[in-house]
């Protein structure tokens, strides 16, 4: 569906994207992960025609991005990280305006608006001004606007930033539903690893303008040399003791044990600590790798606060 070959982009002499090679299958959900300033937003901005590439070849749905941008844009929809609509208008007025820009009118416009209102679960407040909405309601509207043109490809840039758990779950469900029912290809960027793990079929990790990892979620997260022990929430003391050992990735509700030369010793130590602190084991999965651990390993744990401007 999307094929990117040798893509380059730089600003003011600074390389933002370097020799990007990436392909996305039709009908898949691809999670695009990367720290601040890695180049995620730049990559999506190029794919959506917001900015121009310096070099490289991109085809989308068999169409060349450079020559057939207009046709490609009519097949796609972009939901920015920011709340890209008019807060002094109602949700209904926003949908009507953006729908008209897609060339929708009359019965078709009404049908698409009805679909989007339903998809965003906005019936109760669709005629209220957006500046009265909660963060979750605004995020749902942001997504709903992106569905107006029945896109074949949906670009979602951090679609759940700043929302409550319920709205977040609803947005993820909606994305999965649209992907399942319409076969919409979704490119999804997020800082939330669990979201990507939950929703994506494919994962690409980008760092410092380069794709450092790309593959199916199953292939990436299945690792014969690891064991995931899911537990009931541990006390801070238990977590602290476990974190002192090497070869472990410890969270409050799970422990990841690498099958290295200390595997047996580590397994025994983990169970001893769990027993000593009265923690009940819920599940043990062999051959599972933790996405966050993988991400940090690939991108290093260096802070990137100052590099988010062109991300």
């Amino acid at each position: 569906m999307i094929s990117i070959k040798h893509l380059y982009k730089s600003y003011h002499g600074k390389s933002i994207l370097y020799d990007i090679q990436l392909s996305v299958r039709r009908g898949s959900i691809m999670g695009l992960l990367g720290p601040n300033g890695a180049g995620k937003t730049t990559l999506i901005s190029i794919l959506t025609g917001i900015i121009e590439k310096d070099d490289g070849e991109i085809t989308i749905g068999g169409l060349d991005l450079e020559r057939e941008m207009g046709r490609i844009q009519s097949l796609c929809s972009y939901v920015p990280q920011t709340l890209a609509f008019y807060t002094r208008l109602s949700a209904f007025e926003n949908l009507e305006y953006f729908g008209s820009l897609w060339g929708l009118k009359g019965k078709k416009l009404k049908e698409r608006m009805a679909f989007c209102i339903d998809a965003g679960s906005m019936e109760a407040f669709v005629h209220k001004r957006v500046d009265t909405f909660s963060g979750g309601m605004k995020r749902r509207l942001n997504l709903a606007i992106g569905l107006l043109n029945e896109p074949d490809i949906l670009y979602l840039d951090e679609p759940t930033v700043g929302v409550d758990a319920q709205s977040r779950n609803y947005i993820l469900e909606t994305i999965r539903k649209i992907n399942r029912e319409r076969g919409t290809t979704v490119i999804y960027t997020s800082h939330y690893m669990d979201e990507i793990e939950q929703v994506a079929d494919e994962i690409a990790v980008i760092d410092e303008g380069r794709i450092v990892l790309h593959g199916s979620k199953q292939a990436l997260l299945t690792h014969a040399d690891a064991v995931l022990i899911s537990v009931e929430p541990m006390t801070e003391a238990a977590v602290g003791v476990l974190r002192q050992r090497g070869g472990l990735q410890v969270k409050a509700d799970n422990v990841h044990v690498e099958r290295d030369e200390r595997f047996n010793e580590n397994m025994a130590a983990v169970f001893a600590v769990l027993h000593d602190h009265g923690v009940r084991v819920k599940d043990i999965v062999f051959g599972h790798r933790n996405l966050e651990a993988l991400f940090l390993k690939l991108t290093s744990s260096r802070l990137r606060d100052d590099e988010g401007q062109n991300g």
Partner: peptide, 9 residues
């Protein structure tokens, strides 16, 4: 708010 980016896309 990124609306211009959305319009451009």
């Amino acid at each position: 708010q990124g609306t211009l980016m959305r319009l451009k896309s």
